[in-house]
Each structure stands twice: as structure tokens, then as C-alpha cells.
């Protein structure tokens, strides 16, 4: 599959399966199995896997671009986590199980070994879609080295939702993993890869709300003319569009940085910038929509709530700006420009 066909397939598939009814049901706790099955049948979750592990040989940056399409549809499914889990497991030579997957690199987990048998225990908060995933890829350490453990059971799940009412569960683990192997991926890299997925999802959601808001400004009439004719509204829309453009660029940077071996400074810049755009953009979209956008009935909130959730997940601006700032400062004043151009 070439990238445009892949993206068009995803756009069509999500348009068909992720309706406002499905989004509302997902908020009530009904996991959209049919939509997942359609996604899985099209193989959209396999994009980051090498061909020998079941992938279909698409460039990783192109596969990650699917997450922008997911963001455009407020996709209430663990596509990002399944892709990352597959990437993590395949990278460690562990066979990737079927179905929806998730990941965690919670520091509160301990992997031990007793003779030939492994044991994993501890608590992992905020595991995305923990409630619905068939298995969890855990990145932890053993004797100071990164290890991946695959769990299909041996944990209990505490209900917890993010601001968009997507499951972000606390897992209490006491398990004999299905498989364990050393990993080349560090906890920081996994967090950064997660951050990259959110930068792309933010970009997609912003793109969508810019379209919705522009259309609304053309349609809604007050004082005898479409509100889009008022200069104040035009300026807000222009700002929304500019923030969206920045987030789309950030999403692209993030995808390329993951494909390029998970480059931390680039992802830091991308996630921080996309998260900043998410807050500004969500605010402007609501402002232009007026009270109608503050209702449950209108779809805007499915996107703006996710923008708020995603801007914090895998680290918000504070975390990633600080990391980037320290990276820039460490190189010294005279190396600032070369350091920036190397990102």
C-alpha cells in the first residue's frame, strides 16, 4: 500500500464507522468492536511492523500519519497503543498477538526472575485502553537493562477515564508474563514515541475543528450576516488555522523523528508545540461556536475534549519544553543555531 491509498482507506473507514452515535456510546463505556474489526481487517494497526512480523512494508512515518486521520475522527480505539505495542514487541523479537494492545512503562513495576521463570508485579497508572486491550506490552528493566514483557493476563483493571471519557486505567499487576525479552527501546524513547502519536492525533483533531468552525462561521447568522463576516471572528479563525498549521507540521516532525530512531529533541519540540496549539485551538473553536458548541448534542466536544486529553498524555508542554530547553542550553550559546538545525 502506498501512503495516500493507506490514508484514504483510513479516512473512508473512519468516516463510515465513527459516527456521533458511536462516539457517544464509547463515552458511556461501549467499546466500538465493529469499528475495531473493520480497522483490523484493513490491517491499519500493523503499519509499524516489519514485514516478517506481519507488517506490509509501509514507511513508518507514513504508517504513523494514520494517527492524524484517527485524530480527525476522534477515533475511540487504541490504534496508537496497538501500533506502539507491536513496534515494541517486534523490536524485541516477541511475536505480536492479535487484537487491540496497549503499552506501559510505569516506573512502579518490577520484573524478577526465579530460575527460568519470570515474574512482573506492581502498579501502572493511566494505561490507555487497559480495559479493552487483549494484551499489554510492558517496558521495564531487569538488572538495569530495558526489557519488554508481554502480558495477556495476571492484572486487575481499575476504571478510570480521561477528560474525553476514554479509558486510562490503573493496572495492578501480579503476573507471569507470556514472554520476556531485552529491548533496544528505553522508557524515555517509549514515552517520546507515545508523545509523537499524540502530536499527530492533535494535528488531525485541530484540522477537523478548523473545518467545522469555518463552516459554522459561514452558516451562523447574527446581526443580519454570517458571523464569519465580522473581522473579530475572522481573526479568531485565522489564528485557529495558524495553530492548526503549526500542529500539522509538528505532527509530521514527530512521525519522521520516530521513524528516524525516536529522536528525542525533535519529538519534544513537536509534542510541546502541538499541545500548545491544542489548547489555543480548542478555545477558539468553542468561542466561535457560541453556546451551541457547549452542548452535548453538537459534535465539537468530542474533538475538543480529546485535544485537552491528548495535550497532557505522554507529557504536556511543561515536560517537553523543559527537555528541549535543557538540550538547547547544554549545547551552549554559540551552538544554539546548529543544535536547532540538527533537530
Amino acid at each position: 500500500m502506498t501512503d495516500t491509498i493507506l490514508l484514504e482507506t483510513a479516512e473512508r473507514l473512519f468516516s463510515d464507522t465513527i459516527t456521533p452515535q458511536v462516539l457517544a456510546a464509547a463515552e458511556r463505556g461501549d467499546y466500538p468492536h465493529a469499528a475495531w474489526n473493520a480497522l483490523a481487517e484493513a490491517g491499519l494497526h500493523l503499519g509499524l511492523l516489519p514485514e516478517e512480523a506481519g507488517g506490509f512494508g509501509v514507511a513508518p512515518a507514513d504508517a504513523l500519519a494514520l494517527l492524524r486521520i484517527a485524530g480527525r475522527h476522534a477515533l475511540p480505539l487504541p490504534l496508537a497503543e496497538t501500533m506502539l505495542a507491536g513496534w515494541l514487541l517486534a523490536g524485541a523479537g516477541i511475536a505480536v498477538p492479535e487484537g487491540a494492545l496497549t503499552i506501559t512503562a510505569a516506573p512502579g513495576l518490577t520484573l524478577t526472575r526465579d530460575g527460568g521463570s519470570w515474574h512482573l508485579a506492581g502498579t501502572a497508572p493511566g494505561v490507555a485502553w487497559g480495559r479493552d486491550a487483549a494484551a499489554v506490552a510492558v517496558l521495564t528493566t531487569f538488572e538495569g537493562q530495558p526489557y519488554v514483557a508481554l502480558l495477556s493476563g495476571g492484572y486487575t483493571i481499575a476504571e478510570r477515564l480521561n477528560i474525553a471519557r476514554e479509558p486510562r486505567n490503573t493496572l495492578t499487576i501480579d503476573a507471569v508474563p507470556d514472554a520476556v525479552a531485552p529491548s533496544a527501546v528505553t522508557a524515555l524513547q517509549l514515552r517520546a514515541a507515545g508523545a509523537a502519536t499524540r502530536a499527530l492525533m492533535i494535528a488531525g483533531a485541530l484540522e477537523r475543528i478548523t473545518e467545522m468552525t469555518t463552516q459554522y462561521a459561514l452558516d451562523r447568522t447574527q446581526f443580519g450576516r454570517p458571523i464569519g463576516r465580522f473581522q473579530a471572528v475572522q481573526h479568531s479563525l485565522a489564528t485557529l488555522a495558524a495553530q492548526t498549521a503549526a500542529a500539522l507540521a509538528a505532527g509530521d516532525i514527530a512521525a519522521e523523528a520516530v521513524a528516524d530512531g525516536v529522536q528525542i529533541p525533535a519529538i519534544a519540540a513537536a509534542k510541546a508545540r502541538a499541545s500548545e496549539a491544542a489548547g489555543i485551538g480548542a478555545g477558539l473553536a468553542h468561542q466561535i461556536h457560541g453556546a451551541i458548541g457547549f452542548t452535548y448534542e453538537h459534535s465539537l466536544h468530542y474533538f475538543t475534549k480529546r485535544l485537552h486529553a491528548w495535550r497532557d498524555e505522554y507529557g504536556g508542554e511543561a515536560e517537553w519544553n523543559e527537555r528541549l530547553g535543557r538540550h538547547l542550553a547544554a549545547a551552549g550559546a554559540d551552538a544554539l543555531w546548529p543544535t536547532l538545525t540538527a533537530i
Partner: peptide, 12 residues
Amino acid sequence: ARSLVAVDPPTP
């Protein structure tokens, strides 16, 4: 507030 207190991961 969210720039001062990180909510990810969501600890007790």
C-alpha cells in the same frame, strides 16, 4: 495549573 502539576501519569 496543568503546566505546574503534570497529570500524566495520573498518580493517586
